[in-house]
């Protein structure tokens, strides 16, 4: 049936296909004038169809939440029962100590580092390379977010790159180290905060007497022309998107890789 229906389809790349003739030209011809944003994809995404994009961010948020909800194990007691053998490395001598009795308490000490029994990357080269790369990746991510108006990019892409840079830390060191850098609590607050930034910008527009997400409303407060205000509004919501996506990527990764324990795993 699907194959039969293709007979009615317009040919590939046909500039006169109906899809290109109705709404699309209006976007292309007006977007720059109305929103001061040369990247039409960004303009349509974050302004014309910003309502869609807000819920898209909410989808990301709910996926992170769902992974947390389904997998996260929070009772401490159960975890320690499961962890039969614990491994520690004495940093000065590089000796590995195995502790078999679950009840034995090991104090936090700068000389001892707890290891994963399954995943212990030790390669100095990998670690050093990742340590050097990470800041550059993050810088690039910020550029992608900020430059989404003029070149391909935007909140989702930037957020994913930012999240990936932190996941790289988890891959090259271990999950415990990366969870110290990006505490769960912080990520748990940042992920809804991203959606809140987005919806908050929308709500500000309502407060200014316009419709929801009508960034033109912000012109008075920002002291700019409505077009520039739209452009800035797009930037604000893109930042919200990036924050939410980054935090959610880390939440999903941490929960999936360690089956909710956040102790060990890839």
């Amino acid at each position: 049936m699907l194959v039969h229906a293709t007979l009615d389809f317009p040919g590939w790349g046909d500039p006169n296909a109906p899809a290109h003739l109705h709404v699309a030209p209006e976007y292309l011809e007006q977007a720059y004038e109305k929103t001061a944003t040369p990247n039409v994809v960004t303009a349509v995404l974050a302004d014309y169809r910003s309502y869609d994009t807000m819920f898209e961010t909410a989808v990301v948020f709910s996926a992170g939440l769902a992974c947390f909800f389904l997998l996260r194990v929070q009772s401490r007691k159960k975890e320690e029962e499961e962890e039969e053998d614990r491994y520690f490395r004495h940093l000065a001598t590089d000796m590995v100590i195995r502790i078999r009795t679950p009840s034995m308490h090991v104090p936090d000490s700068p000389y001892l580092q707890q290891l994963d029994p399954y995943w212990t990357p030790r390669s100095l080269i990998v670690r050093a390379a990742c340590r050097v790369l990470t800041p550059f990746i993050q810088l690039f991510a910020l550029y992608v977010v900020a430059h989404g108006h003029h070149s391909p990019g935007g909140g989702f892409q930037g957020g994913v790159i930012l999240g990936a840079s932190l996941i790289l830390v988890a891959l090259s060191h271990d999950l415990r180290t990366s969870m110290k850098m990006t505490p769960e609590k912080l990520m748990g607050v940042l992920s809804p905060a991203g959606v809140l930034i987005y919806a908050g910008v929308g709500a500000l527009c309502v407060a200014a007497g316009h419709n929801f997400l009508d960034y033109g409303a912000l012109a008075e407060w920002l002291g700019t022309a409505p077009e520039a205000a739209r452009s800035l509004g797009i930037l604000f919501v893109e930042v919200g998107v990036a924050v939410c996506v980054m935090a959610t990527m880390i939440i999903i990764y941490a929960n999936l890789s360690s089956a909710g324990g956040h102790k060990q795993g890839l």
Binding site: M54, A58, F61, L65, K185, G188, V189, S191, P192, A193, V195, L196, A199, G202, A203, V206, N211, F212
Partner: peptide
């Protein structure tokens, strides 16, 4: 005039606030 927006945005905002509040209070 803003009722339709509140109708849909209120639960969304509340959801985000709860997720943040869960870590605080």
């Amino acid at each position: 005039n803003q009722y339709p927006a509140f109708l849909i945005i209120a639960p969304l905002l509340a959801a985000c606030l709860i997720a943040s509040a869960a870590w605080l209070r």
